[in-house]
Design a protein around this nucleic acid. Structure first.
Lengths: 241, 241
DNA sequence: TTACTTATTGTATTTTTTACTTTAAGTATT
DNA sequence: AATACTTAAAGTAAAAAATACAATAAGTAA
């Protein structure tokens, strides 16, 4: 891309070219959920800087690549995960955040239910692994900071949007849903009232199936009804737990 | 800042230097409120590209400048507004969003009450002016897009956080507050119930003053009690209208 | 003094939330 | 086959909150 420096007439300390010196990266915070614990997917770096450290899934953006594409690409490259809806949550641009130069990074986050999925480490990642968010290793760069902001965003978001469902398998019981929300929000619900509240929203489709392989009365399975939710949202309904 | 290209070992299409070619800018969406209407502050460009067009308050970030500093600086430079708390809301990075090169821009927004403040146009701004958000001129770059996202963020935010108070003068009546929230949220409240609800939150400090220069019974003035709000927030209280 | 306007308080009704209780339906054990 | 055990699912009474109005108060303006 050519930079026609004739454009800018004033106010800049340096020639216009001196402003096109930023590196840009994306970092993805991928949340999972397993047995009552919220997890995050990290990769171990096999390159300098921070060789050996664990890090978020991220990389430099190509000069002609859109941000969302960059996020999707790096996620697929490092973990094989495709078609995951990611949401931009914050951009980190401290002057000294990256040792090799001025790199501004855009944070994306997502929730996935395939916690059993075995991530494949890419060329510059030694390994990839799920970590409990309450028991994290030391992270490269300012990734601890980014991750904390991501967790904060997650906790804010699940309160007002039915994002949480993404963490469960497509078919789930009401108790599974309740336990997930208890983990996300950090407090308990009354079983009976939780059931009533969530069902009255009309965003769950009851299935004619029950939970298998349980040694007690099996619970009915439900599915999140995205279509109903979108319709209700248009009428002004807002999810709230 | 030196870029030691020894670091990266693989996966990049070009030499590492080819990735440090991004321009970075900030754009500020400054909201105001006057007589029931939500306003946004725009400046008219006196330089190419988009000479003559109205635009958000923004500019390129210096190579060694932090994002927040850049936002504060450009706001002061173009409007004289100082010590305004701005919040980052989204980053826009489409490849073709800027005609002179790859410029990624970080959006900040803020609410101010000094709607009567007369903005001073800077060197590259011909003029600065408040516009009703329902009656906007054509905007430079992708600023229409950025502004719409800012409006969306504002409307989401005011529902769950007492941000809206920033739009009012420090001392306000309950009816003024109600009219503001009606403008922000797009629907009406019952006067009596609005009053009850907001007072029960204990985030307003009643003053021993009344509204002046009204030709009817004057209303008591209140102040937002930031300290009480912070305290309540810690105990788990969450603002909701 | 009266009309008018908005402020402020009150109240009855409806709706929602909350805390429990009861019943149902399955598995596991004897 | 009876019994114990576990979780599912439905029900219910009390409390709390939201809602829709009504009544009264306190100013200004004529």
């Amino acid at each position: 891309m050519e930079i026609p420096s004739k454009y800018y007439i004033s106010d800049y300390k340096f020639p216009i070219d001196a402003y096109f010196v930023f590196g840009l990266s994306v970092d993805c915070v991928i949340f999972g959920y397993h047995e009552g614990e919220i997890k995050v997917l990290l990769v171990q770096r096999d390159v300098e800087p921070f060789k050996g450290h664990w890090a978020l899934i991220g990389d430099l953006v190509e000069p002609e690549q859109n941000l969302r594409d960059a996020a999707n690409n790096v996620l697929e490259k490092l973990t094989g995960l495709k078609n995951i809806y990611m949401k931009q949550f914050f951009t980190f641009g401290s002057v000294d955040r990256h040792p090799i130069g001025r790199v501004v990074t855009v944070g994306y986050f997502s929730l996935v239910n395939s916690i059993d999925y075995n991530p494949i480490a890419s060329s510059w990642a030694k390994s990839a692994q799920w970590f409990n968010i309450t028991d994290l290793p030391e992270l490269a760069f300012d990734h601890h900071n980014i991750l904390q902001k991501g967790i904060e965003t997650l906790k804010n978001e699940v309160r007002h949007k039915p994002t949480g469902f993404e963490l469960l398998p497509p078919k789930f019981t009401l108790l599974e849903l309740q336990l997930l929300y208890e983990a996300l929000l950090g407090y308990k619900f009354d079983k009976s009232n939780f059931r009533k509240k969530i069902l009255e929203m009309n965003i769950l489709k009851p299935l004619n199936e029950v939970k298998e392989n349980v040694s007690h009365r099996p619970a009915k399975l439900f599915q999140f009804d995205e279509k109903s939710y979108r319709a209700l949202e248009k009428e002004g309904f807002s999810f709230q737990l």
